[in-house]
């Protein structure tokens, strides 16, 4: 995966993404790389759920988090919902970040991937800067390129919310009530050795 210091789509795209994220009541953060994400998360919680697809994609991530003092839960296959029932914080990786809407596209085909974004109260969405795109049409391209393979992909834009009672906005209904979007700004998305 290649990228530049400002990401594939340039800094103004990132600015628009940031304002979209914040307008949707998520928190926007930039970190250079996964190591910095590990440090950031470990400083805030002692247990974290990892989406199984993320754990498989980045085998070093669980080790790094554990080394930083975090207990790791990767939902098991038998009863994934039960395995994350008491975990507050979850980390997932975004396929795309969309500047137009401040959304993160998360692909979660497996039940284990789905339970972490649905059942945990705090969701950390990590997306490399070179996955930042301008418009929804690029999401359409991503979906079309999958050629009809089974899948479940969601544009996530902010924490779960409702306005069903007197149109009064309430954050946190069935899904997470806190979402942090972390954009990785370094040129590589590999874990950098030698950092906590």
């Amino acid at each position: 995966m290649t990228s530049t210091a400002t990401g594939a789509a340039g800094s103004s795209t990132r600015e628009r993404f940031r304002s979209g994220v914040e307008a949707a009541a998520s928190t926007y953060l930039e970190q250079p790389d996964w190591s910095a994400v590990v440090a950031y998360v470990a400083a805030r919680t002692d247990t974290v759920a990892l989406a199984p697809s993320l754990a498989a994609d980045k085998p070093d991530l669980a080790d790094a988090l554990e080394a930083a003092g975090c207990a790791i839960v990767v939902p098991d296959q038998d009863d994934p919902a039960a395995s994350v029932a008491d975990v507050a914080v979850a980390i997932v990786q975004g396929e795309l970040a969309i500047a137009e809407t401040g959304s993160v596209l998360v692909s979660e085909h497996l039940l284990g991937d789905r339970v972490v974004t649905m059942l945990c109260r705090q969701l950390v969405q990590v997306v490399p800067a070179d996955r930042l795109v301008d418009r929804l049409e690029e999401v359409a391209d991503w979906l079309a390129s999958r050629g009809g393979q089974p899948g479940f992909a969601s544009l996530m834009t902010g924490p779960s919310r409702t306005a069903d009672i007197e149109r009064s906005l309430t954050i946190g209904v069935q899904g997470p009530d806190e979402v942090e979007v972390i954009v990785l700004t370094a040129t590589t998305d590999e874990l950098v050795e030698g950092r906590p």
Partner: peptide, 30 residues
């Protein structure tokens, strides 16, 4: 097409609840 669906997304959220996009736009295939 998916691209057509995106045009619907742009108008649906704004016309329904005045949101640029809803919190979740899920694409379920199989």
């Amino acid at each position: 097409t998916y691209a057509d669906a995106m045009k619907q997304v742009r108008l649906l959220g704004r016309s329904a609840t005045a949101q640029p996009i809803t919190v979740y736009t899920n694409f379920v295939t199989g």
